[in-house]
């Protein structure tokens, strides 16, 4: 019997699964963005979502971050279902997840250091000193140790995005969502941000879900690439295979256009 097979048991054990989408549907009015979507991400796995604009990639991250609600279906994080929960329980689910946005979304009313320390102090209950120490370590990691007391508006886009990465990491999430984090940057600033993310991918075992148009970066950090089209995953696999010999015609067309 399948259920008695120990190998199968461990492979589906809830502990090793970070994210599960089970028949998830997202509609805006008549427009279906996600169409009975199924996929899983294992803990520590780095998954890149690729596909044409409007294929629902960003919606997946926004659903996980609880910025949107599913129309149908169930999302589980670390084995706990969390779609449709009231605010209090949503906060418990959100604890595991961090997000970096396309437009950085730093708080203009706080200096760089306070952008990073505010949530650890308010939400996690760290002391100001503990939070500041954590923040300075992270600023060091993203190469901005000298910018702690600067206003975010005085930084370049690339620097702002690196602060935003530090801010998300300061909450020690298990799962990091990266939503087209280099799309709003001038070309010469993209590399600095990608280097920081590569370092983090190497130095930690954090689970990453990444929406990007940077195929070189996707190839470097991903364990798996998911190709989206029409609100579904039409093909998935390790980046070496996906980029060299895609099976699906839509994937070939898409990669032909972006590579």
């Amino acid at each position: 019997m399948l259920t008695d097979n120990p190998a199968r048991k461990t492979s589906v054990s809830p502990v090793s699964t970070a994210v599960t989408f089970d028949q998830v549907v997202k509609r805006y009015g008549d427009h279906t963005v996600l169409d009975h979507l199924d996929f899983e991400v294992r803990q520590g796995e780095r998954v890149t979502l690729i596909g044409p604009s409007g294929s629902g990639k960003t919606t997946i991250l926004r659903l996980l971050m609880t910025l949107e609600r599913v129309t149908e279906g169930v999302i589980q994080v670390n084995g706990q279902p969390f779609s449709g929960l009231p605010e209090k329980q949503l906060r418990r689910a959100r604890r595991h997840i961090g997000m970096v946005f396309q437009q950085f979304n730093l708080f203009p009313n706080m200096k760089v250091l306070d952008n990073i320390t505010e949530a650890p102090v308010q939400v996690l209950g760290l002391s100001r000193d503990e939070a500041a120490e954590r923040a300075r370590d992270l600023l060091d990691l993203v190469g901005l140790a000298d910018k702690a007391d600067v206003h975010p508006t005085r930084l370049s886009g690339g620097q702002q995005q690196r602060v935003a990465i530090a801010r998300a990491l300061a909450m020690r999430p298990d799962i990091l969502l990266l939503d087209e984090v280099t799309s709003a940057l001038d070309p010469e600033l993209v590399q600095g941000v990608l280097d920081v993310l590569r370092d983090i991918a190497q130095a930690t075992d954090i689970t990453m879900l990444c929406v990007t148009h940077e195929m070189g970066f996707a190839r470097d950090i991903s364990d798996r690439v998911l190709m989206f089209d029409g609100g579904r995953v039409i093909e998935s696999g390790p980046p070496e295979r996906m980029f060299s010999e895609p099976e699906h015609e839509r994937t070939r067309d898409f990669l032909g256009a972006v590579l």
């Binding site: 730093l106 203009p108 009313n109 308010q122």
Partner: peptide, 25 residues
Amino acid sequence: RAQWEATVALNMTPWQRMRKVILPQ
């Protein structure tokens, strides 16, 4: 709205969002 989204991503309570981020702006 992006500011509100950042406060949600940092798991702030509605009161913390208002007091620390939205009102000061």
